[in-house]
Design a protein around this nucleic acid. Sequence first.
DNA 1: TTCAACGATTGACTTGGATCAATCGATTGC
DNA 2: GCAATCGATTGATCCAAGTCAATCGTTGAA
Lengths: 246, 246
Amino acid sequence: MGQHKLSDEVSLAVIKKACSNCNLRELCLPLCLSREEMLRLDDLVSTRRRVRRGDHLYRAGEEFDAIYAIRSGFFKTGVLLSDGRDQVTGFQMAGELLGLDGISTERHTCNAIALEDSEVCAIPFSRLESLSREIHTLQHHFHKVMSREIVRDHGVMMLLGTMRAEERLAAFLLNLSQRFTARGFSPSEFYLRMTREEIGSYLGLKLETVSRAFSRFQEEGHIAVQQKHIRILNVAGLKSLMHPSH
Amino acid sequence: MGQHKLSDEVSLAVIKKACSNCNLRELCLPLCLSREEMLRLDDLVSTRRRVRRGDHLYRAGEEFDAIYAIRSGFFKTGVLLSDGRDQVTGFQMAGELLGLDGISTERHTCNAIALEDSEVCAIPFSRLESLSREIHTLQHHFHKVMSREIVRDHGVMMLLGTMRAEERLAAFLLNLSQRFTARGFSPSEFYLRMTREEIGSYLGLKLETVSRAFSRFQEEGHIAVQQKHIRILNVAGLKSLMHPSH
DNA sequence: TTCAACGATTGACTTGGATCAATCGATTGC
DNA sequence: GCAATCGATTGATCCAAGTCAATCGTTGAA
């Protein structure tokens, strides 16, 4: 009886670990896979890793052998220039993939740091390649994910190249809101996991400029800010800030 | 005899078209493939397309079904916002791939315009996926190419996010020089195919700023500029401009 | 509970690059 | 060959965001 109970617990743990049982499967790599295909993916995604707030998931220059799916938590990726300048290249949340940049040189080209205690699924890349040679749907979906990353980066280039400070921050907040929504969280109320400085680095602004823009948005009634807690009061207002007529 | 001659000419034309005979194969998709594998790629890359200077290879919103390898010529890609702002997202030269951004949504997300009379090889994407299910090397190399695009975009984000005007232009010139070198052209002397405005859009600057930076570089003896003709006189000098001590 | 460290806010001032404008030089179409 | 058009250069001025600095609020460790 005790034996039975133990084995129940073990299989429960296994089930909990599997992609096929993950509540992020509609956002993550398993998207569009059949039940049977997903079970094969489960084998691949065997190792979980916990990353504490502030710790690196990987560092630029380290050998690349796996990509990571975020199961819970929040990350930032960034590159550091020799002269000390650094640039946050992205913020990633549950259901998103990390490490795609490492494929090109077989070394990670950026740092990935957890902004809160997080858990990731490691996906050994060579095994992902083998499996996607067998499962068309997985192959195609993986290509789409990589391509989406390129499109996302073009969006950031657009933002950095053509937008002014307040437009950038409005775009940033709307993007976060939309991603939280897709994960079943409130579109209008959330905690920022990153500092003003990190937001500024991502948006190509100084932290003071970010802070002033937040204050301005608040004065104008578009949002309510209290430190890292954000409430969006007027989505349309924020959207209009992105396309100023002046 | 006449018959024989004709058939010779036809097969010559076929050979000329093939990847296996393309002098860009060391830069392009066929990289690392065996002789036999390359012959299979030849079947795939059947259609060539000429694109005249100023013409679109594809437009944002069009259906995506193929990626393009540039055989000769020069392209720019860019996105256009509803309010008229547009952003050049890249310049592509012979041996580079175009259209990877379209995979994600099955529609092209940017415009690709030839900056000089060009020729491209169309690679039907679904057939590339089938073939790369069979040829590991092709699959892996294609993943590397996509990943390299992501890394490149992160470099541009770094540039737009942290560099000042003259650093951006210096980085741009050094990048062009390096890519021309890889193609067997002079590292120190080349013609720009794009206008000051297009350079400015790519670098997040106004055309006047680009022009002034060129003039400054010339005054300081780093380069010689005459319209679109550039000679780099002092590579080390340009590099030092990228990491100013101040 | 207190203090130290860190992040955020706000103010005063400076500046790099944008904007507006005039001119010049090169293509290109007639 | 000549005007017309387009791209590049240069100058004068302006402003958005950066810089420097002081203060405040939170958080977390002793």
